[in-house]
Amino acid sequence: MNKAIEQYIQTNREEILTKWIESMKEKSDERVLKVVSDQVFVGTSREFIDLIVSNLKDSDEKYSEKLVEFAEKVVRLAWPLTFVTDGLREFARIAFEGMNASGHVNEENRMEIIYDFDNWISPMTNEIVNVYSSTWERTVSLQKIALQELSAPLIPVFDGISVMPLVGTIDTERAKQIMESLLNGVVRNRSEVVLIDITGVPVVDTMVAHHIIQAADAVRLVGAKCMLVGIRPEIAQTIVNLGINLNQITTKNTLKKGIESALEIMNKKIISTGGEN
């Protein structure tokens, strides 16, 4: 590393940081500034500059640790990779122009300093891209696993009776997860009656209804009865208008009524055991 570059950056660190923050605010996508407060933006920007400067003096192992921590933070803040890489180039530009204005760069050493800047910034850019990308992929993978674990659980509520509450939009991929969770849960819980609650499903179109019918058919094939509950008036109207045939599925408008019906099927009922006053 060129000693003149290192010394200039260390000496003029705060001035470079101030110019860098002003420049990046002008260049940045509005989405970057909207998702974080000004304090967080400045604080993270300072961490970024610290990371760049630490590359001048820290060991490779210590620098790598800081790089991973920073990458994880900017991924959580939803800062795009282009913002980070552009920030690195902007830092180099500000530092070079500062050196040029202060007389550290002249005709004799200009090309040497430009070459040294490039040799310093390019490998760091590549390393940041690699760490950011792997961190992003790992974060997305963990989020996907978490969503899969939380998606459509089959909940046993009484002996032989289970409920699967569905929330949110149902697409083809999620429908497959619902089917798998439903069938595995029926066998595992030894369910005889399964209630699919669509209270939290905003739209029931032909595709969603098709997936629900398939799920109900699959439940019957493993020896359990399936009931569709939580059918709101607007959903019922949509189903009728689309000509969707749910004749093979017992339907109820609320989960409460569905559970009452399921208890009747199981020849069970809830009896109050309250004592006398």
Results as ranks from 00 to 15, higher is better:
Thr273Asp: 09
Lys269Ala: 05
Asn247Gly: 15
Tyr115Leu: 08
Asp217Tyr: 03
Val219Gln: 02
Ala216Phe: 04
Ser181Tyr: 13
Phe96Trp: 09
Asp217Glu: 07
Ser181Thr: 10
Lys256Trp: 01
Pro80Tyr: 12
Leu17Pro: 01
Ile170Phe: 05
Thr18Trp: 05
Lys25Glu: 08
Leu150Arg: 01
Glu264Gly: 08
Val186Leu: 01
Glu107Val: 09
Val140Met: 14
Thr254Cys: 00
Ala209Trp: 09
Ser45Gln: 10
Val157Gln: 00
Glu276Met: 14
Asp58Gly: 08
Met24Leu: 04
Phe83Tyr: 14
Leu246His: 07
Met266Trp: 06
Val42Trp: 04
Glu26Val: 08
His104Arg: 06
Asn130Tyr: 02
Phe83Cys: 05
Thr206Tyr: 11
Ala92Asp: 08
Gly185Cys: 07
Glu72Asn: 14
Pro202Ser: 09
Met124Ser: 08
Ser59Asn: 05
Asn126Phe: 12
Val167Phe: 12
Met99Ser: 08
Asp38Asn: 10
Lys144Thr: 14
Leu81Asp: 14
Ile239Pro: 07
Met266Asp: 02
Ala71His: 01
His211Phe: 15
Lys19Gly: 05
Thr125Cys: 00
Leu67Glu: 09
Glu97His: 13
Glu47His: 14
Ser64Phe: 14
Leu246Asp: 06
Glu90Phe: 03
Val204His: 14
Ile49Glu: 14
Arg93Lys: 12
Ile145Gln: 15
Asn100Thr: 09
Val163Cys: 07
Glu30Tyr: 13
Ile178Tyr: 03
Thr254Ile: 05
Ile121Thr: 10
Ser59Glu: 03
Leu56Gly: 01
Ile198Cys: 03
Ala71Pro: 13
Lys25Asp: 01
Glu61Trp: 02
Lys225Leu: 07
Ser141Tyr: 11
Glu234Thr: 09
Thr172Lys: 12
Val129Ala: 02
Glu47Ile: 00
Asp116Thr: 15
Ser134Met: 03
Glu108Asn: 07
Phe91Pro: 01
Asp118Ala: 13
Lys176Phe: 10
Asn12Gln: 12
Ser133Tyr: 10
Val240Lys: 07
Ala215Ile: 07
Thr199Glu: 01
Val32Asn: 09
Met164Gly: 05
Thr172Pro: 04
Asn241Phe: 06
Gly103Arg: 11
Leu263Arg: 13
Leu263Lys: 08
Asn119Pro: 09
Thr250Asp: 03
Val84His: 07
Leu88Gln: 11
Thr139Leu: 11
Pro153His: 10
Glu107Tyr: 14
